[in-house]
Amino acid sequence: MKPIDIFKALSNETRLQILEWLKEPEKHFSSQEMRDFQEAGVCVTQFHEKLNVTQSTASQHLSILYRAGLVTTARHGKWTYYKRNEDAFNQLKEIIEHEI
């Protein structure tokens, strides 16, 4: 986990919104969608609909968050599901407190 990659990922309002939704997904996605989340996470399709962007754009944002280590993925068939990587946020907190 490189701090510069994390800060670049966090420098976009849409990606910050995605991370906020993933912090408490039950508040931001319907109960039908949440049934899927309980098992695997939130599907990219749910993000593209909620963000009102193309699936490709939503996937790009999620890919940047993934490469920065801020989200984890689980693949089920042709679908990819995303969750926040809370360990990464704890590490980021340590970096900010002790290195910056």
Rank of each mutant, 00 (worst) to 15 (best):
K23H: 12
K23W: 07
K23D: 10
K23A: 10
E24V: 12
E24W: 11
P25K: 00
E26V: 14
H28S: 08
F29R: 01
S30D: 13
S30K: 04
S30L: 08
S31V: 15
S31E: 15
S31H: 12
Q32V: 14
R35G: 13
R35T: 14
R35E: 10
D36Y: 05
F37V: 11
F37G: 04
Q38F: 13
E39G: 05
E39Q: 13
A40R: 03
G41Q: 02
G41T: 00
G41Y: 01
V42C: 05
V42Q: 00
C43W: 08
V44D: 03
V44C: 06
V44A: 08
T45Q: 11
T45D: 11
T45R: 06
T45C: 11
Q46K: 00
Q46Y: 02
Q46V: 00
Q46F: 09
Q46S: 07
F47K: 00
F47S: 04
F47I: 03
H48V: 06
H48C: 12
H48L: 04
E49N: 08
K50F: 05
L51D: 00
N52Y: 04
N52I: 09
V53Y: 06
T54G: 10
T54D: 10
T54V: 06
Q55Y: 14
S56I: 09
S56W: 04
T57N: 12
T57E: 08
A58T: 05
A58Q: 05
A58Y: 01
S59W: 05
S59R: 09
Q60F: 13
Q60H: 12
Q60M: 15
H61R: 09
H61V: 07
L62H: 02
L62S: 00
L62F: 06
L62T: 01
S63H: 08
S63K: 12
S63D: 00
S63E: 09
I64W: 02
I64M: 06
L65G: 01
L65D: 05
L65V: 01
Y66C: 08
Y66M: 03
Y66R: 08
R67E: 14
R67M: 09
R67V: 14
A68G: 05
A68H: 01
G69L: 06
V71W: 01
V71Q: 00
T73Q: 09
T73D: 07
T73G: 05
T73Y: 09
T73R: 09
T73K: 10
A74H: 13
R75L: 13
R75E: 11
